[in-house]
Simulated assay, not measured.
Amino acid sequence: MLEFALLLLPDFLLIALGFVICRHTALDRSVWSGVERLVYWLLFPVLLFTAIVRQPLALDTTLKLGLGGTAVVGLGFVLATALGRVPGVPSRLQASGAQVAFRFNSYVGLALAERLGGSASVASIAVLIALCVPLCNLGAVWSLARHGRHDTWRELLHNPLILATVAGLLANLAGLRLPEPVAVTLARIGAAALPLGLMAVGAGLEFGGLQQAPRLAAALLAIRHLALPAAGLAIGLLWALPRGQAQMLAAFAALPTASSCYVLAARMGGDGPYTAGLVTASTLLGMASVPVTMALFGWLHPA
């Protein structure tokens, strides 16, 4: 269990580094606002596009796995949206934080897959990422656009994360292979997304943010780290997925939320500090939920 916890430690350290740099150096909040825009409009979209294009998608042989992943994401979306109907829940905070309940950190997922099962597991997690990233981004943009009285469809059609994901899927399915210089250039641009995105989370962090609505935060984090891992384990059993795919579905369901939740909330007029607090809390909880879920998987699926 310790090795899985250590896998998440670098993400949290980058968040902490962003917080320290923003609060205690000349690189203050004015600098990090520009970094957020750079990550949102360029770095994350390039990373999503290149990650999807370079992974082979054998959708015909992984249909049940893909459906399982969409079911997990869908459950998180439904439960998080339902919280908005609970009396007394602040609508702006719910709209900002709902995405934390159903989005996932794909970078941690890819690293975890490589450690668990090598290339076969990476191929499985790539299918889940390719199918679920568009759904997660649609759900997140819809929640924020609806609350902010934006034109939801306009926001969806202009969202760089959704556009990059759709473009990556179409390019992959069309068999597009980028020229080596282009592929290397895009890979280097995308490689900057993770560290800068995580540090931007830390730079925008206000530890008092979660105190605005602690019960809502607890509910959203319980969906992300209790309900969804339980659903991933159950689907793998009930649908009789092959052991390797069932393991990847369980790991996928237990991942911490996406670091870009804060960037999206901040860019669409949501509550950035509250979302940043949720992302940090989810990263910490992920250091427990992933090892525990993997231990439960081993008990349910003995080798």
Rank of each mutant, 00 (worst) to 15 (best):
F4R: 14
A5S: 11
L8A: 07
P10K: 13
F12N: 11
F12A: 11
A16C: 15
G18E: 01
V20R: 12
H24E: 09
A26T: 11
S33P: 10
V35F: 04
E36C: 07
R37A: 14
Y40V: 04
L43E: 01
L43D: 10
L47H: 03
L48D: 11
V53P: 05
V53F: 12
V53A: 02
R54S: 04
L57Q: 11
T61A: 15
T62F: 05
L65K: 05
G68I: 00
G69N: 09
T70W: 01
Q94N: 08
S96H: 03
V100Y: 00
F104P: 00
S106K: 04
V108T: 08
G109L: 00
A111L: 15
E114M: 14
R115P: 00
L116Q: 05
G118N: 11
S119R: 12
S121F: 06
V122A: 06
C132M: 07
V133K: 12
N137Q: 13
N137L: 08
N137E: 10
W142T: 06
A145R: 05
G148I: 08
W153K: 07
W153N: 13
W153S: 12
N159S: 10
I162H: 02
L163R: 09
A164N: 01
A167T: 11
L169K: 04
L169N: 01
A174L: 00
G175Y: 03
T185N: 12
L186D: 08
L186I: 12
L186A: 07
A187V: 10
A187Y: 11
I189F: 13
G190K: 10
A193F: 01
A193Y: 05
V201M: 02
Q212R: 01
R215G: 14
A222Q: 03
I223T: 03
R224P: 03
L228F: 01
A231L: 11
A231N: 04
I235T: 09
L238C: 10
W239C: 12
A240D: 00
L241C: 10
R243W: 11
L249V: 04
A253F: 07
A253Y: 05
A254N: 05
A254D: 06
Y262K: 03
A265Q: 09
A266C: 12
R267I: 06
G272L: 06
A276Y: 07
A276F: 06
L278Y: 08
T283R: 06
L285A: 10
L285R: 04
L285H: 07
G286L: 02
G286T: 01
G286A: 03
M287C: 13
A288L: 15
A288Y: 08
S289L: 02
F297C: 10
P302V: 02
P302F: 06
